[in-house]
Write a protein that binds this DNA or RNA. Sequence first.
DNA 1: TTCCCCGTTTAGAATCGTTCTAATATATTG
DNA 2: CAATATATTAGAACGATTCTAAACGGGGAA
Lengths: 141, 141
Amino acid sequence: MRASGSKAVTDLVQRLRTAGLRPTRQRVALGRLLFSSGDRHVTAESLHLEAAKAGAQLSLATVYNTLHQFTASGLLRQVVVDGAKTYFDTNTGDHHHFYAEDCATLIDIPGDAVVIDGLPKAPAGMEIERVEVVVRLKPRV
Amino acid sequence: MRASGSKAVTDLVQRLRTAGLRPTRQRVALGRLLFSSGDRHVTAESLHLEAAKAGAQLSLATVYNTLHQFTASGLLRQVVVDGAKTYFDTNTGDHHHFYAEDCATLIDIPGDAVVIDGLPKAPAGMEIERVEVVVRLKPRV
DNA sequence: TTCCCCGTTTAGAATCGTTCTAATATATTG
DNA sequence: CAATATATTAGAACGATTCTAAACGGGGAA
């Protein structure tokens, strides 16, 4: 096993290529952080910090670029729960979120668990792109 | 009927007093714009512009202050659908939203129409504050 | 009415997350 | 290896929002 080329990495490189993205050092580093453990929620800032701690040195601009490119390629999804920061979710499947404002934490809710009934149909000329449920949490008193 | 004191205005002044807010010229002006027609969705910017057009001159900082005070007093609710701007909704009851990203428009969905089933219970130590559904719309092709 | 106190407003500066710019570096192709 | 297109970068720019400190004004007391 070569030090620089585990199966996970070659898979990731393949995913990037398939998405039309050159597997640069920076994109591979971020991809490893994002995709090698289970589902994750990150912000540009948090990922940048994490990358720095892991020894990768890349600019914050690159983190932003990469997160957007990954999102455009369907590798990530953007989650809007807070006006101040943008979250990115490695789980791109159908699901929803708990959001604990007081600790700025997102928790996935599997999509197949939740049934939503009685939604009106979209206004004329529009169609539904996605239905997002955010369950806001507060500390129990 | 006095020129400066319709019933709507005295009601508004009363609402502000009850909320512990002095009925200043600026708060009354914004309150009239917000509460005299039906349910509304505004941003600080849009309300500031509207106030200016209506002849009230107040600073953008005051609009921000007032929106936050009204929200803290339960006269308004904040709606998070877009990372860039914060929306405020005069409908503080239980309801949800359509959001048309391409024209930055919010449309209310009555709360009693929608039934959500199968939500997991809140994580330990947390409780559910509110369940928000956002239905994202795109123009039909 | 007049005075005073304290909450409110204000202009402008500051802050924060994010995006842009234009110069440099790097991946890929031939 | 050279050529070319794409990616990265530091730092400036940006837009929404918040902060600051000084001026203002509501409303109770005298």
